[in-house]
Computed example of a mutant assay.
Amino acid sequence: MADQISGIKIPDSKIAREAAELVRQHESEMLFNHSVRVFVFGAMRGLRQNVKFDSELLYVAALFHDLGLVDAYHTQTKRFELDGADAARDFLRSHGIPEPQADLVWEAIALHTTPGIPQFMRPEIALTNAGVLVDVVGIGYDDYTPEQREQVIAAFPRGDFKNEFVKVQTCSALKKPQTTFGTVNFDYIEYHDPSFHKPNACTRIHSTPWKS
C-alpha cells in the first residue's frame, strides 16, 4: 500500500498492519479499498478542520467498518454495523488496547450509517462517518480538491464500486431484513424488491396491548 496519500500517512504500527492483514483476508478488494479511502478522506477532513484525532484508532475503525458484511463476521440477529464493531473491539482488546479506546472504535463503527448524530461526537466517530459519506454517497465531495480525490483513487481504485457495493449491501440486508428496519439499510431491500414493506411505526404503536 502507499505510505502517504495527499499528506495523509497510512498508519504503520504493528496493530495497524495486523488490522489491515486481518481485514484483507476476509474482504474483497472493493471493500478493502473503500475502507482505506474512508480513513484517508476522514483524516483529510480532520486536518482541514484542525481537529485532533488518533490516526491509528481512526484507521482501525475505517478498516473494520464494513467487516460485518462478510460471511466470517455475519450474525443473524445484529445489524452489520454491530458485527463489524464487535470484531474491531475484540481485535483491539486482544492487542491490549484500553477499554475506552476500544469502545471509541466500537462507537465509530456502530454509528457510521446513522444520520444526524456522529458529526457531533468525538473526532474518530465523526471522521469515520464523514469518510463513509463522501466515498459512498458523495456528501462533502467538493470539500476535497480534484487532485486530492485523484490521488486517493489512484492509490485505492474504486473499480465498479457503485454496483458492487450495492450488491454486497443488498445481500447482507436480505439475509437478516429484521435488522434493517428503522435504518438506511432497508433501502437496499426496497431497491431490490419494491413490493417489500417494512413494519410501519404508527401501525406498531396502535397494535400494542396497551389500551391507549
Rank of each mutant, 00 (worst) to 15 (best):
D3Y: 11
S13H: 11
K14L: 07
E18L: 14
E18Q: 15
A19H: 02
A20Q: 05
V23S: 02
H26F: 15
E29S: 13
L31P: 00
H34R: 05
V36T: 05
R37M: 05
R37S: 09
V38G: 04
F41D: 00
A43S: 03
R45S: 06
G46W: 08
G46H: 07
G46I: 08
N50H: 14
N50I: 04
V51D: 04
K52Q: 07
L58H: 07
V60E: 00
A61V: 00
F64A: 05
F64T: 09
F64C: 09
L67F: 07
G68D: 02
L69P: 01
D71C: 08
Y73D: 08
T75M: 02
T77M: 13
T77W: 13
F80A: 10
E81H: 03
D83R: 07
D86E: 13
D86S: 11
A87V: 04
R89G: 05
L92K: 05
E99S: 12
P100W: 11
A102Q: 08
W106N: 04
E107C: 09
A108P: 04
I109N: 00
I109F: 03
I109Q: 01
L111M: 12
I117C: 05
Q119H: 07
F120I: 06
M121L: 14
R122A: 13
P123Y: 03
E124P: 00
I125K: 00
A126Q: 04
A126K: 03
A126H: 04
A130M: 06
V132L: 06
Y141V: 02
D142F: 00
D142N: 02
D143A: 15
Y144Q: 02
T145C: 02
P146R: 10
E150W: 02
E150N: 15
E150A: 15
V152D: 03
A154T: 14
A154K: 15
A154V: 09
G159P: 12
N163L: 09
E164M: 13
V166H: 15
K167C: 02
C171K: 15
A173L: 07
A173K: 05
Q178D: 07
Q178V: 06
T179F: 07
T179D: 07
F181T: 15
G182L: 11
N185E: 10
Y188E: 08
P194Y: 09
P194A: 12
S195L: 04
F196G: 01
H197M: 07
C202M: 12
R204H: 13
H206E: 07
